[in-house]
Design a protein around this nucleic acid. Structure first.
Length: 454
RNA sequence: GUGGCUAUAGUACAACGGUUAGUACAUCGGGUUGUGGUCCCGAUGAACUGGGUUCGAUUCCCAGUAGCCACCCCA
């Protein structure tokens, strides 16, 4: 790959370009092509999410891929991993610091503020689907460019919104036959969180330093103390097991809010796991936070369990104001589409073929081809699911295509039929063919297709 | 970002320090002239890149690159 250096504002090449094998330019690390075969999964997912967002009243919004890098630094948080370690950012020709969006929420909130959406009936419910970028080390289900579905509800503080968003996510996975567990916690508002962190730090200072904390945690303590709860090192788990739990330190309002969220979830029978160690890495969260974890198929499956989160979200009551808008509470979540597809593939859930074709138009000879093209257009306009491959000359090849497409009937038009004013209709399953008057072919086809439905 | 494993046709895999690097699926062509799904025959098609060891490297060693796994973190 070419390497460049910036020299007095000019970009200079320091390493000449060399293609990988002289034939092709290889994909960049962590990037992925979505090929037609896989696109079936994408269609399934967009169909499902479109249904859900429609019924729950979420309207589609798109925002630019490029934003001012500061937007993310100030909202997601300069010290968060996503920003500090993983954000794709660069200086553009105007010497502005630009970022490829590492997540959806800040851009959506920016848009809400910029377009004065507080003048719309509140809350504003938004649905977003787009590519996001993180410069992470790639792994299965972890890409540098990946796709997120985001639902954001801005302008409502009631806990029913939190619960309903979780319900939507739950429905989404359930209807795709993916087994998940909601991990949920509350990290309180800025007030009660501060008090809790104090308590936590004291606990760790007393208990943690004497016993051994892992190196990461020693560093975290005092800087990002909430993260101590999250550590997977055995010695740290042992200590964090008895650590004070934040829900015991929530203020009255935060506590009531959280209890309400859980009650609503119970009401609609969404299973969840109260995970007092769940802490989310983004600065703007308050009160409710949750993640969506897959449940591994079963023990008979030897597969190594990849506990990659399929989604996550929470409440962010302060962000709108922080980004310069009129104060508005908000809540939202994101889902990683590639990971969902991975799960669907893993489970071998059969996909319905939504490309079911009924009729194939085959032709032999140039004269027949012209007439067949006209017939094809006619059938298409009549709303029939009709297919063709006029680029092929031999009947053999055309029937082969018809077979692969799974059409029920093939119409065969050759020189002989043109002379007689007829056309052949071939039942692809039985192989039985009939000669039909060319003028009556449309009636004949519709008759046969209608009979089949019975 | 740290550590480990891997790298062969489009895909999944195999063998080998030495002449034509195999198999399956896929693709294309054929099994008489106008008939698909099964079967048979044939063809196309590959050693990630760079360096080293060696008479000789796809094979052994090193580096780069990429993928995977664990960690970090997350979607």
């Amino acid at each position: 790959m070419q390497k460049f250096i910036r020299n007095k504002g000019k970009i200079e090449e320091i390493k000449p370009f060399k293609s990988k094998n002289g034939k092709v330019f290889a994909r960049l690390r962590g990037m992925k092509d979505v090929l037609p075969d896989e696109y079936r999964y994408w269609s399934l997912i967009s169909k499902k999410i479109n249904e859900l967002t429609k019924t729950y009243g979420y309207k589609r919004i798109d925002t630019p891929i490029l934003e001012n890098a500061e937007l993310y630094e100030r909202s997601t948080g300069k010290t968060s991993d996503i920003i500090a370690k993983e954000m794709f950012s660069f200086i553009d020709k105007n010497d502005d610091k630009i970022a490829l969006r590492p997540e959806g929420t800040p851009g959506i909130v920016r848009s809400y503020v910029e377009h004065g959406m507080f003048n719309l009936p509140q809350p504003v419910k938004l649905f977003w689907l787009g590519q996001v970028f993180r410069h992470d080390k790639p792994q299965a289900g972890r890409f540098r460019q990946f796709t997120q579905i985001d639902l954001e509800c801005i302008g409502e503080k009631g806990p029913v919104i939190d619960a309903q968003l979780i319900l939507i996510a739950y429905n989404f996975f359930k209807e795709l036959q993916i087994d998940i567990m909601i991990q949920i916690n509350s990290i309180g508002c800025s007030e009660c969180r501060k008090a809790y962190i104090n308590k936590l730090e004291n606990y760790y200072k007393e208990r943690g330093n004497r016993t051994k904390l892992c190196n990461d945690c020693k560093r975290r303590l005092g800087k990002n103390s909430l993260r101590l709860l999250d550590c997977k090192e055995d010695q740290c788990i042992a200590i964090s097991a008895d650590a004070p739990q934040i829900i015991d330190y929530l203020c009255e309002e935060c506590k009531n809010h959280f209890v309400k969220v859980l009650e609503y979830l119970d009401e609609v029978e969404v299973p969840y796991n109260l995970n007092s160690h769940l802490v989310r890495g983004l600065d703007y969260y308050s009160k409710t936070v949750f993640e969506i974890w897959p449940i591994d198929a079963d023990d008979s499956n030897v597969e190594v369990s990849r506990q990659l989160a399929l989604g996550g979200g929470g409440r962010y009551d302060g962000l709108v104001e922080y980004l310069g808008g009129r104060p508005a509470p908000a809540c939202g979540f994101g889902i990683g589409v590639e990971r969902v597809i991975l799960k669907i593939k893993e489970k071998n859930i059969p996909l319905k073929d939504d490309d079911q074709a009924d009729i194939f138009v085959a032709q032999l000879g140039d004269q027949a081809r012209r007439k067949a093209m006209i017939l094809f257009e006619e059938l298409r306009r009549a709303g029939l699911q009709v297919r063709q491959d006029f680029s092929k000359d031999s009947l053999k090849n055309q029937l082969e295509v018809a077979n692969k497409l799974g059409t029920k009937y093939s119409l065969i038009l050759g020189q002989k039929e043109i002379v007689d004013g007829t056309i052949l209709i071939r039942d692809m399953e039985s192989g039985i063919q009939e000669v039909v008057d060319f003028k009556k072919i449309r009636q004949e086809i519709t008759k046969r297709l209608n009979n089949e439905i019975k």
